[in-house]
Design a binder for these strands. Structure first.
Lengths: 343, 343
DNA sequence: GAGAGCTATGTAAACCTTTACATACATCAT
DNA sequence: ATGATGTATGTAAAGGTTTACATAGCTCTC
């Protein structure tokens, strides 16, 4: 029972007095074996404590039951809850999750490619907006893949994420409803698809409200807290200031809040600020940050479901799943102050 | 070159005009093959783009190059940075990381046990303080394992974490140095080893300072924010109050701060508060929380190194590695207010 | 110059499954 | 009774690797 070496299918076969083929069938195609036989096999399995050797199975089948998840940084607060969704869905279907992070280093990306080539992973979930490998190199033999959190730039890879345009639209509409007209958009890198989409939402909202182009201010950065703080420094060198800041993500918004506070301004009395993502810190800011929530667990769940479908069907049901973002109203937005509104 | 089916060792052997045994040796025991041969093999590998099929290799070797990491909740903010350390160290040694979370559900734990039994994982990193499986069930055939973040209750499993006693001592000594004498310890569950150790640090500090037993207040809870808030409610029903709260972890400390603030008190003017862990939120509290930092990335790194050593040597070099905790001074501690100190 | 001792390589078995193909038996229609 | 059809099971090959054992050639020693 608790032998040193684990039981194999042969041990089970011997005890159940059938062939190993029958044991395999009893496990994986139960309807193909007679009731009485199945019973004997199950008993033998219970006695031996047999579990299928996944290595042998994967070798024979030519595919594993592991999904590789590659992110730029697994320490990122945005990462963990998506991971929860991914993991739950995977496990429910008998798959396991293998994780790796590239730290934006192409070399690392290549190391993970080996997991793929060596058949250790049957599919790929990509958090990085780009293929982490030597770009065109291996796209041909890339396994079924799904991008998540950030659209995959290279194209051709299905994507599951939040509807950036709608999310941005919700933020800008809140700001407009509060009476703001001069609203700055603090973005990150223009190369990120999320940037262009959120920016598109910003413009669409402003267009709909009839806000003229010359009241729009758009800055770029790199999406970090520091970059948000820097944007404030730059803006205060200009002669006109917005009454509100719509930020491309929460990190930037936090930086903006820090920059504003450092200059002695009050939020939301003097300036309103919105973020995007709803990272865990957002609620702990003072004031708590009004932002757009990414339904992270749900994103993970859908992404894995899509990948699993890809794995069995070959063809993706849809090429892009956009989940509904929620506006989370906290305390970083109010009507524009008289003082600034006058400008 | 970019055939549909990946190259096998046989393809390499044919091109290099050697036997497959030589190819295998050229890869894994390079010193055993002649220079000229090794060169031919390497060229053939480059031509074919060959990578070892990990499934076949693991099957033959009877062990995989995967490490299973099981945590109660992979969404926990404490989790991610340890994971970074684990992953870096593992990858550096050619290992991959498989993750799972139990959500404190024994059934789930058993599902992961299958990964172990089916040879998919060669080792185990445990975040849960207890074995997540039907306790004694399989301890015998458990693979090499290392506990992390929280000592494994069952014993026998090496542990890598922070020195809880020293950390608690640093917190209590800070409070004492500021002039506090009546300091409450807000703990979580008595069954957690971390609880007893941190509590021991609390007592040792108080003993050293000659603070009598009747000035000590100890409460228990479950380590959540809500539990910290509740502790405040309970304490305010008593007739004597402490001037400072030393909390078993940051979550509890955050709850304490919320409870205190809700009653109109100022921190640190009216009461001082310390936490333990330095979770990401700690710095965003108002005031920012003074706490003890867990060197998370380092813990992950050491834990994986220890596990890898176990895997090759069989015997653990040491049974417990305790890392030095750092006191992170922020703004939630000051000298006791006159008002309260008088009591 | 013959045996011993090395070094470099090859042959073939083993790791544990899954599954195509073969076989045996039962059922049914004619 | 015979052949057709169907069901339940068994046999054996294949999947890609590692490595014990065998072999062959070389160098060294006496």
């Amino acid at each position: 029972m608790s032998n040193s070496t684990p039981a194999t299918i042969e041990d089970v076969a011997r005890i159940a007095e059938v062939s190993i083929a029958t044991v395999s069938r009893a496990i994986h195609m139960p309807e193909k074996v007679a009731n009485s036989t199945r019973l004997k096999v199950n008993q033998a399995i219970a006695i031996t404590g047999y579990t299928t050797n996944a290595m042998a199975r994967s070798l024979r089948l030519g595919r594993s039951n592991m999904i590789l998840v590659v992110a730029p940084d697994i320490g990122d607060p945005n990462f963990s809850n998506i991971l929860v969704g991914l993991e739950n869905e995977a496990r429910a279907h008998g798959y396991g999750i293998l994780i790796g992070h590239t730290q934006n280093d192409a070399q690392r990306g290549l190391e993970y490619l080996k997991f793929l080539n060596s058949n250790q992973a049957a599919g790929l979930i990509l958090f990085t907006g780009i293929l982490p490998f030597g770009h065109q190199t291996m796209t041909a033999r890339l396994p079924p893949s799904v991008g998540v959190f950030e659209p995959v730039f290279n194209g051709g890879i299905p994507y599951v994420g939040v509807d950036d345009i709608e999310g941005a639209r919700k933020a800008i509409d809140l700001l407009l409803a509060e009476g703001h007209r001069k609203i700055a958009f603090i973005g990150d890198s223009r190369t990120r698809l999320a940037y262009s989409r959120r920016r598109a939402g910003y413009d669409a909202g402003l267009d709909a409200a009839g806000v003229p182009q010359d009241l729009r201010i758009v800055l770029e950065g790199d999406g970090t807290i520091e970059s948000g703080r820097l944007a404030i420094e730059q803006l205060f060198m200009r002669d006109t200031l917005p009454t509100a800041f719509m930020c491309v993500n929460d990190q930037t918004a936090i930086g903006v809040m820090i920059g504003l506070t450092a200059r002695g301004y009050k939020i939301p009395e003097d300036f309103s600020v919105t973020g995007f993502d709803d990272v865990p810190q957002a609620v702990f800011m003072s004031p708590p940050l009004t932002t757009i929530r990414q339904p992270r667990t749900l994103i993970g769940k859908h992404a894995m479901a899509l990948l699993l479908e890809l794995l069995s069907n070959g063809q993706p049901a849809e090429t892009e799943i956009l989940l509904r973002p929620d506006l989370i109203v906290r305390n970083s937005v109010s009507a524009p102050s008289r003082q600034w509104a006058k400008r």
